[in-house]
Design a protein around this nucleic acid. Structure first.
Length: 198
DNA sequence: AAAGTCAAGAGGCAGA
DNA sequence: TCTGCCTCTTGACTTT
């Protein structure tokens, strides 16, 4: 058909076989888009009737490059169909398809090569988009975490206010210490015996 | 006129 | 060495 069957080896993207998944769907990437003006059924410079010799690069009038071949709708359709079944052709398949389409095997081969290249290009573009999005969300996550770190730092810097259990007045910071076990602020007098330190 | 599309040429590389 | 594929490029043709 006219869709590219792309698959991406990126987690989170649509699975290789099921293009109806979340994430990217390539169904609407139209490779052989029909010319917007409504392409006519064209003779396509391809082998018509008996001119096997002339078709394609059979540049009759030497010198300049031969006229560009345009594949007919039907030829494109059948090539796409074949491509869907297999992305490469063995010599026999190539020969058969070529004679079926009235093209030279070389032209079928070139079409498949170009088709693979286009598929790969689209895949690469999609991967690029995906990575861009990853970058964006990771940047955002990074920003958020940095803000969090700043907030936590600010909390630790501010001297804790601890009330004396006796006087109910705020204790001087110098009399306070951090308990290494529970990570809480305690009074300096509350100390573990040196023997228990290790 | 510029930009886009695509068939085809050419060179390079890997595997048989 | 040959064959088949990939990649880059060219140039005819189409679309915007």
């Amino acid at each position: 058909m006219e869709d590219l069957e792309l698959t991406m080896g990126i987690p989170g993207l649509s699975s290789p076989s099921g293009s109806e998944g979340g994430g990217y769907n390539v169904r609407d990437l139209d490779m052989n888009r029909p010319a917007s003006g409504g392409e006519e059924e064209i003779p396509a410079g391809s082998c018509e009737e008996g001119d096997e010799e002339e078709c394609g690069d059979g540049d009759g009038d030497g010198g300049s490059r031969p006229k560009k071949l345009r594949l007919s709708k039907e030829q494109s359709r059948m090539l796409e169909e074949s491509f869907r079944q297999n992305h490469t052709l063995n010599p026999k398949q190539k020969e058969a398809l070529a004679s079926k389409l009235r093209l030279r095997p070389r032209q079928v081969e070139v079409w498949f090569q170009n088709r693979r290249a286009r598929t790969k290009l689209k895949q690469t573009e999609m991967e690029c988009e995906y990575l861009k999005r990853c970058f964006g969300s990771l940047t955002e996550e990074n920003r958020r975490l940095q803000r969090e770190v700043e907030e936590l730092r600010a909390l630790r810097v501010a001297p804790p206010t601890v009330l004396s259990p006796v006087t109910r007045q705020p204790m001087p910071a110098s009399s306070l210490t951090m308990c290494p076990r529970c990570q809480r602020v305690t009074m300096a007098t509350h100390r573990r015996p040196p023997s228990a330190a290790a």
